[in-house]
Amino acid sequence: MSDSLALLAAADPVREAELPGAAAPQARALKERILRADVVVAQPSRRRPTVVAVAVAAAVAAAVMVPRSLEREPVAAAAVLERAAVATASATPAPAGRYAYTEATTITPATDTDEPPFTALVPAVQETWIAADGSGRIRTVRGKPYFPSERDRSRWLAHGSPPLGLPPGSITVEPLPVSPDAAALAERDPATLDARELDELLNTPAFLPTDPDRLERLLQEYAKTKDPPAESMMFNQLEDLLTNPYVSAALRSAAYRVLARMNGIDLRGPMRDPMGRPGTAIDFPAGSTGDMRYRLIIDPATGAVLAEETLLGQPNDEVAGAQGTVLAQVVYVRSGWVDSVGSRPAARR
């Protein structure tokens, strides 16, 4: 250690070894509070790969701004989303059973950031049964991991071929209950809510405002508490609202209208989803660099989200592959309402 660094180390104002440790009462209380407060596990269908993708983008982010020239047809995009807002108001089914059932096929990126970093892609089929209180079950059957590029594969080999994600198989999850504080939080000015309170509120759609202005303001406050850029976080949260079965028709319409106002929405036009269903696609820049983008494929006739994807723009340090490689994906195969965990709706949507 050089002189200046030794001097600096000696001037550390905090004596770390003397601080209360994890076993101290306040620390244990904090840990319990965090484990209780969690509501994300309650809806892991929303363990959408986009969160991971944002982390990947952030890791490589020198503050390169995304060119906003993507606004090719902002008016057309807004019109498509407005049509979706109108359609979803009448096409969103009200809860008709104890559990919302969803079947989805997913691709989730698993990035190892140890040098040299690589990314593997893990496909899965996921079925969820979620009750209004957030309890239920998620059944995940993982497929065989694969690599977006030869570079990723060779780096994985160089690491000694470590296991990728969880082993294939079926996993049952018992989600945690949703927090009961949301009603009180919904009454407050969003600007006065802290990050934890905003998370709680956003995870309780029954209390979210159905007025687009108010919803937009709440989402803006929420996005400020997350990793920048705020637009990505808003887009992710809107996707969550558009795919959460407990979001009312009115709230879903509002979410489409907030989406329509966002800068950077790129209308891709008619596009079939990975199952071949016809839809309309919109893209949005992901993260703070231009190297990824989100894609949402919606059914304009019903406002239903058919699929969400994160696509590779430019290869970066953590993932290589051709432009447009799908790094993350959720395809909503079918959904409906059932009365018990494990049963499936009879009719396909």
Partner: peptide, 28 residues
Amino acid sequence: MSLVVERRGRFEQVFEENFRAVYAYVLR
């Protein structure tokens, strides 16, 4: 073992091992 139990276990480990370091970081 369920995924939740696994996640809780991992979180508890991360918390035990790093609480003091994070606390010190913030205090500094």
